[in-house]
């Protein structure tokens, strides 16, 4: 059985998808200070992908995100673990955090901690899981 599809969904999937993705990034970045973070951000992005799936099926998801889920999972995990390992280079403990201030082109100077790359890793893994689900369980008709 095919999930029902409406015209409105079809039309809004594109714009809504991009807004949701942006929102997920916003949640990811603000997570350290307000509700949000890598999980929640990743789950929102995942929900956006589901929307895309509802609109266009597994192929649509595949067209939207061309990265293989395995790779995305691997990268996310590697990023999180490497963030944990990095402190060893400066003689700190595994997973020890440091405060950072980064100059970004549009946003100016952003104060954050090394927890951010860690959270980004989390984000990727969550998105990777949703991708994997949609490609496999969602793939069969």
């Amino acid at each position: 059985m095919k999930l029902s599809r409406s015209l409105i969904l079809d039309m809004s999937a594109g714009p809504v998808f991009h807004v949701a993705l942006l929102f997920s990034a916003f949640l990811l970045f603000r997570g350290h200070n307000a509700p949000g973070g890598g999980f929640i951000g990743g789950l929102v992005a995942g929900a956006a992908l589901v929307l895309r799936y509802v609109a266009g099926g597994a192929d649509e998801v595949h067209r939207t995100v061309r990265v293989a889920p395995e790779l995305m999972l691997g990268l996310g995990l590697a990023l999180a673990v490497l963030t944990g390992v990095a402190p060893w280079l400066v003689g700190d403990q595994f997973l020890e955090s440091a405060k950072l201030s980064v100059d970004l082109p549009l946003l100016g100077t952003v104060k954050t901690t090394t927890a951010l790359p860690f959270d980004i890793g989390v984000y990727f893994v969550v998105v990777g899981l949703v991708l994997a689900v949609l490609r496999t369980i969602g793939g069969e008709e």
């Binding site: 790779l71 999972l73 691997g74 990268l75 995990l77 590697a78 673990v81 390992v85």
Partner: peptide, 9 residues
């Protein structure tokens, strides 16, 4: 763990 991530990549 790191190796698992690399192995996935």
């Amino acid at each position: 763990l790191l190796a698992a991530a690399l192995s996935l990549a």
